[in-house]
Amino acid sequence: MRNLIFSAALATLSLFGLSAQAETIEAGNQYVELSSPVPVSEPGKIEVVELFWYGCPHCYQFEPTLNPWIDKLPEDVHFVRIPAMFGGVWDIHGQLFITLESMGVERQVHKAVFDAIHKEGKKLATAEEMADFVATLGVDKDKFLSTFHSFAVKGQMEKAKKLAVAYQISGVPTLIVNGKYRFDVRSSGGPEQTLDVANQLIAKERAAR
């Protein structure tokens, strides 16, 4: 009898666990549905955008959870990082990111830039300081500086600022799924929960096709 009771209790706990795991998310709670959807950069794919700032400690803390998730995304999901630029050093760091991305080296040095600011106490607040730092990572200093000051990078900065306005963001890190749904670590309940919200919204968009 004791074994039967124990087995029944385990079954109940299992069912409860499955129920909790399958709990659905709701607009207005874990995420916000944008009133005006923003076009995605790669039509035909489900886009996930992260808006971030290199100087943001919450963005830095989110990285170890976010990056392994990015690496496992299926082929129909396109992940994009966009620097949030609210003026001052936000814009300078945004220009840094866009420069590195334009040079095709962002993936190799992204973590090192975060570490330099949050672990090593570097400001990376001027073009020369940035150029000297990325040169230690194998990035050509002169090419970095010419790209940093180029019209192409400045154009990408303006585009990123317009997207942030369209997404109606007020802080970082913030995620946007398919130009329709906005959420962040706080609204979701934590880093892991944020990615669970992302997974559910990706599934929602995939099912709607």
Rank of each mutant, 00 (worst) to 15 (best):
M1D: 05
S7R: 05
L10M: 04
A11E: 03
T12G: 15
F16K: 10
T24F: 12
A27D: 14
L34C: 12
S35G: 15
P39L: 11
V49C: 02
E50F: 01
C56M: 03
H58V: 11
Q61F: 12
Q61E: 15
T65P: 01
L66I: 00
D71P: 08
K72G: 07
P74R: 08
D76C: 11
D76L: 13
V80I: 14
V80H: 12
R81G: 10
P83T: 04
A84V: 06
A84C: 06
F86Y: 13
W90G: 03
G94D: 07
F97I: 13
S102F: 08
S102I: 10
S102Y: 10
G104V: 13
Q108G: 11
F114M: 11
D115I: 07
A116T: 02
I117M: 11
I117P: 04
E120N: 10
K123M: 11
L124T: 06
A125N: 13
A125I: 08
E128L: 15
E129I: 08
E129H: 09
L137G: 01
V139G: 01
D142A: 13
K143F: 07
F144G: 00
F144T: 01
T147S: 02
S150D: 03
Q156H: 12
M157A: 07
K159C: 07
K159T: 15
A160I: 03
K161E: 09
A166K: 08
Y167G: 02
I169A: 03
G171V: 05
G171F: 05
F183P: 11
D184C: 11
V185Q: 12
R186K: 13
S188R: 12
G190C: 09
Q193R: 14
Q193A: 15
T194S: 14
L195K: 09
A198V: 09
L201G: 00
R206S: 07
